[in-house]
């Protein structure tokens, strides 16, 4: 597996990971990172700990080159589940909480 695909992306000045990257990094099945996210969702703040981007927006937006670049980078790193219509980006702080909630590895 390409190690580059698990490199964090940068969004709004923060290093972020997609749910697919977290699943892959931990060698767990699709949905495991989202399950951990659901366990701690009440303690996280959207816009600080995680970001939610609509895939349709990502696909169509051209006015924001940074977002276009992020989308292209995520696609090339195979960091998105094909059936997802929403991208959840997890910051390092939130990932630490996910790890505690689900015993995910710290790799």
């Amino acid at each position: 597996m390409c190690s580059l695909s698990n490199q964090p992306f940068h969004y709004q000045g923060q290093a972020v990971l997609t749910l697919r990257q977290i699943d892959r990094m931990n060698g767990v099945i699709k949905g495991s990172a989202f399950r951990a996210f659901k366990r701690v969702a009440d303690t996280l703040i959207e816009g600080e700990d995680y970001f939610v981007l609509a895939m349709d927006e990502l696909k169509t937006r051209s006015a924001d080159p940074a977002l276009n670049a992020l989308h292209a980078a995520m696609l090339s790193a195979d960091a998105l589940y094909p059936s997802s219509r929403v991208v959840v980006l997890i910051t390092q702080t939130a990932y630490a909480r996910l790890q505690r909630a689900a015993n995910l590895s710290s790799s």
Partner: peptide
């Protein structure tokens, strides 16, 4: 029910 689109469905199926 767009919650199923957040992480993606268990297998590829038209929503």
């Amino acid at each position: 029910f767009d919650i199923y689109a957040v992480c993606g469905r268990a297998f590829p199926i038209d929503p």
